[in-house]
Structures are given as C-alpha cells and as structure tokens.
Measured scan of single mutants.
Amino acid sequence: GSPGIQSFLPPGWEMRIAPNGRPFFIDHNTKTTTWEDPRLK
C-alpha cells in the first residue's frame, strides 16, 4: 500500500476531514487548526 498523506505532514500535525468534505489541518504543537496545508508554506 502507499503511505498515507499523514506521513508527509510536519511533526505534531494531523489532517482531518471536515463535515463538508474539506480537509483541514490540526497543529497539536500550538493547539490550532487551519485550512492551509502546512507543507505549502
């Protein structure tokens, strides 16, 4: 199987799917959430 997208996120980050189907990202380091992919910064 191919590695999940989770493995490509920075340490402490998690990806979830919102009720509307959009992915969002949780930064457990700062306890914040964002719509922006942290890998694109």
Score class of each variant (00 low, 15 high):
residue 1 G to I: 13
residue 2 S to P: 14
residue 3 P to A: 13
residue 3 P to S: 12
residue 4 G to Y: 03
residue 4 G to N: 14
residue 5 I to R: 12
residue 5 I to T: 14
residue 5 I to M: 13
residue 6 Q to N: 15
residue 6 Q to P: 14
residue 6 Q to T: 14
residue 6 Q to G: 14
residue 7 S to W: 07
residue 7 S to Y: 09
residue 8 F to G: 15
residue 8 F to R: 10
residue 9 L to Y: 03
residue 9 L to G: 01
residue 9 L to A: 01
residue 9 L to E: 01
residue 10 P to V: 04
residue 10 P to Q: 03
residue 11 P to D: 11
residue 11 P to I: 07
residue 11 P to F: 08
residue 12 G to I: 01
residue 12 G to M: 05
residue 12 G to H: 06
residue 13 W to H: 00
residue 13 W to E: 00
residue 13 W to I: 03
residue 14 E to P: 00
residue 14 E to M: 03
residue 14 E to V: 06
residue 14 E to Q: 05
residue 14 E to I: 05
residue 15 M to H: 02
residue 15 M to F: 04
residue 15 M to T: 04
residue 15 M to K: 06
residue 16 R to Q: 10
residue 16 R to M: 09
residue 17 I to K: 06
residue 17 I to A: 04
residue 17 I to V: 10
residue 17 I to R: 08
residue 17 I to N: 05
residue 18 A to M: 10
residue 18 A to R: 03
residue 19 P to I: 08
residue 19 P to A: 12
residue 19 P to R: 12
residue 19 P to G: 09
residue 20 N to S: 10
residue 20 N to M: 02
residue 21 G to M: 02
residue 21 G to I: 00
residue 21 G to P: 11
residue 21 G to F: 02
residue 22 R to M: 11
residue 22 R to T: 11
residue 23 P to W: 13
residue 23 P to E: 11
residue 23 P to H: 11
residue 24 F to P: 03
residue 24 F to R: 07
residue 24 F to I: 15
residue 25 F to M: 00
residue 25 F to A: 00
residue 25 F to Y: 12
residue 25 F to R: 00
residue 25 F to H: 00
residue 26 I to F: 09
residue 26 I to L: 06
residue 26 I to Q: 03
residue 27 D to E: 04
residue 27 D to A: 01
residue 28 H to W: 15
residue 28 H to N: 09
residue 28 H to A: 06
residue 28 H to C: 14
residue 29 N to F: 09
residue 29 N to M: 09
residue 29 N to I: 10
residue 29 N to Q: 07
residue 29 N to K: 09
residue 30 T to V: 03
residue 30 T to M: 06
residue 30 T to E: 06
residue 30 T to P: 00
residue 31 K to W: 06
residue 32 T to Y: 08
residue 32 T to A: 07
residue 33 T to K: 13
residue 33 T to F: 12
residue 33 T to G: 08
residue 33 T to D: 03
residue 34 T to C: 08
residue 34 T to V: 06
residue 34 T to K: 03
residue 34 T to P: 01
residue 34 T to W: 09
residue 35 W to R: 04
residue 35 W to A: 04
residue 35 W to K: 04
residue 36 E to Q: 11
residue 36 E to W: 12
residue 36 E to C: 15
residue 38 P to E: 01
residue 38 P to N: 00
residue 38 P to D: 01
residue 38 P to Y: 00
residue 38 P to S: 00
residue 39 R to L: 05
residue 39 R to Q: 03
residue 39 R to M: 06
residue 39 R to N: 07
residue 40 L to S: 11
residue 40 L to Y: 11
residue 40 L to A: 11
residue 40 L to T: 12
residue 41 K to S: 14
residue 41 K to T: 15
residue 41 K to Y: 10
residue 41 K to P: 15
